[in-house]
Nucleic acid binder design. Structure first.
Length: 485
RNA sequence: GGCCCCGUCGUCCAGCGGCCUAGGACGCCGGCCUUUCAAGCCGGUAACGCGGGUUCGAAUCCCGUCGGGGCUACCA
């Protein structure tokens, strides 16, 4: 039997990293077992659903490197894979439930329910639905509905009773029906609730494994009850540990922008993001942290997923991103960093200008963790006049023997020909010797003069790429500025 | 409040009765390298929440306790 898994995000907001991580686990499991991965859109809440979120989600999932065998955009035997197109099917299922005696009409208004809930809470009773309308005679209820009276349809939860299931992550679960109220299947508007729609879809689409966040663990008995009432058999469930923010609370908007989109635009690599997310609640090997998606597929199993919630650690993600950046061939680094570079610089680069970047690229590659850092690394290369970093200037330039070094270097550098890293370095090392000063005192002033900062890519390579004329000009300018006080 | 889940370094994970004087990764600290910053290399810091059992032996099993979290809608 081939496994079929799905993710079913609601397009009521941006795709959250928690959902993205669920998608990764589902995908990994499907691929590992040669099964199918399906992407469905749970948009029963039509008022809050937005098409923009649907396409953003698709882009995000693709960006991560996931692909799906059926679902939104790619199609399949089950139509559009959007719940909003299947309301008739859900009503039909509801009807089936009602005919089978597993559901009943409820004529309580939301206002009445609010009042009774408040009372129950005050009296220390469970706040769920009290089952009042369950007592209404079926024929009578049908007549009232036929008479256009507003009614919702609720599941008649078997009482007494218990629902038990084996969760791949949590092992044996047991829920007493005492704690499950007769929840709504169909709203009085005729729209299905999430519980109904999602369960019907899982049944109709032959989903074999449902791996989702632990926040749905207590809803699972409801889904099992619906499934059984429908005469189908339940999928295997796996409730994944939740993702937490640094404060130990469920990751949400209050932790800043936690949408996958935010991470994409922050400049993370999809490989790093995938790798990092797969590590949240799972481990590839006790000794190995970095691995490819294919390697993960070869070892992944829902059985091995941890029960503990995981704190999303941006520091580790960044480190990992840096690892991936450093691991790629230089040519790839150059191409992939280009968009962020030009964006950071504010304009596209002419071929000749880009060529300078290309020369410095290997040195940049080992110094950044995130794409946006490239522009900061080489900005000095593309300005007419360097902007001196205030701290660097006072720390380096306003000290002996910077002034002397600058003018001495100027004289020596003028004679350097050809202008290469090696010849520049040779000339400067000779200067060090003759002036009898250390490399720090001798080179830092030049660095600040050329790049504007005491922190930069390696000096001589930088000077070579900048060019002789520009380099001399900058050293001269710094020298003059120093003289002027 | 009720129901449910969870509890190993600050964080993520390994550990599934003896291999644990608890391992790896991030972070942090120190060193080496070095013209800065990185990278790299080397080293260090740091945890089984607590209390009872069970057992020859427990991080691993059981109970309790404390702590954290989730759910508790005609949202999903």
């Amino acid at each position: 039997m081939t496994v079929r898994l799905r993710i079913a995000p609601s397009p009521t907001g941006s795709l959250h990293v928690g959902n993205a991580r669920s998608a990764v686990f589902n995908w990994l499991y499907a691929r590992r077992h040669g099964g199918q991965f399906i992407v469905r859109v749970d948009d029963t809440d039509t008022a809050r659903s937005d098409e923009r979120h649907v396409s953003e989600m698709i882009d995000g999932l693709r960006w991560l490197g996931l692909d799906w065998d059926e679902g939104i955009e790619v199609g399949g035997p089950h139509g559009t894979y959007r719940q909003s197109d299947r309301f008739d099917r859900y009503r039909e299922a509801a009807e089936q439930l009602w005919r089978g005696g597993d559901a009943y009409y409820c004529f309580c208004t939301p206002e009445e329910l609010d009042v009774r809930r408040a009372e129950a809470q005050k009296a220390g009773r469970p706040p769920g639905y009290d089952g009042l309308c369950r007592a209404i005679d079926t024929e009578q209820a049908r007549a009232r509905v036929a008479d256009d009276e507003r009614a919702s349809l609720r599941l008649a939860v078997p009482r007494p009773g218990v629902t038990e299931f084996r969760d791949l992550v949590r092992d044996d679960m047991r829920f007493d029906h005492e704690n499950i109220d007769d929840f709504v299947l169909l709203r009085s508007s005729g729209a299905p609730t999430y519980h109904l729609a999602s369960t019907v879809d899982d049944v109709d689409y032959d989903i074999t494994h449902v791996a989702r966040g632990e926040d749905l663990l207590s809803s699972t008995p409801k889904h099992i009850l619906i499934t059984e009432a429908l005469g189908a058999s339940s999928p295997t469930y796996a409730h994944l540990p939740l993702l937490f923010g640094p404060d130990g609370k469920k990751l949400s908007k209050r932790h800043g922008d936690t949408s996958l989109k935010a991470f994409i635009s922050a400049g993370y690599l999809p490989e790093a993001m995938f790798n990092y997310m797969s590590l949240l609640g799972w481990s590839y090997d006790p000794e190995i942290t970095i691995y490819s998606a294919d390697e993960a597929i070869a070892r992944f199993d829902l059985d091995d997923v941890s029960k503990n919630p995981a704190v999303f650690d941006v520091d580790k993600l960044q480190w990992m991103n840096g690892e991936y950046i450093r691991a790629m061939p230089v040519s790839e680094f150059i191409e992939r960093s280009r968009p962020a570079l030009e964006e950071g610089l504010g304009s596209p680069l002419e071929p000749a200008e880009f060529d300078k970047y290309r020369q410095l690229a290997p040195l940049i590659q080992e110094r950044i963790k995130m794409w946006p850092e490239t522009a900061e690394m080489v900005r000095w290369l593309y300005v007419d006049e360097v902007e001196y970093d205030q701290q660097s200037w006072s720390k380096v330039m306003e000290k002996e023997p910077s002034a002397a070094v600058l003018s001495d270097a100027l004289g020596r550098l003028e004679k350097v020909d050809p202008w290469t890293t090696e010849t520049i370095e040779a000339a400067m090392r000779a200067m060090l010797e003759e002036l009898d000063i250390g490399a720090r005192k001798g080179f830092q002033p030049l660095r600040v003069a050329v790049t504007g900062s005491s922190i930069s890519p390696p000096l001589f390579e930088s000077m070579e790429v900048l060019g002789k004329q520009a380099s001399l000009g900058r050293i001269g300018a710094a020298s003059a500025r120093l003289a002027a006080g």
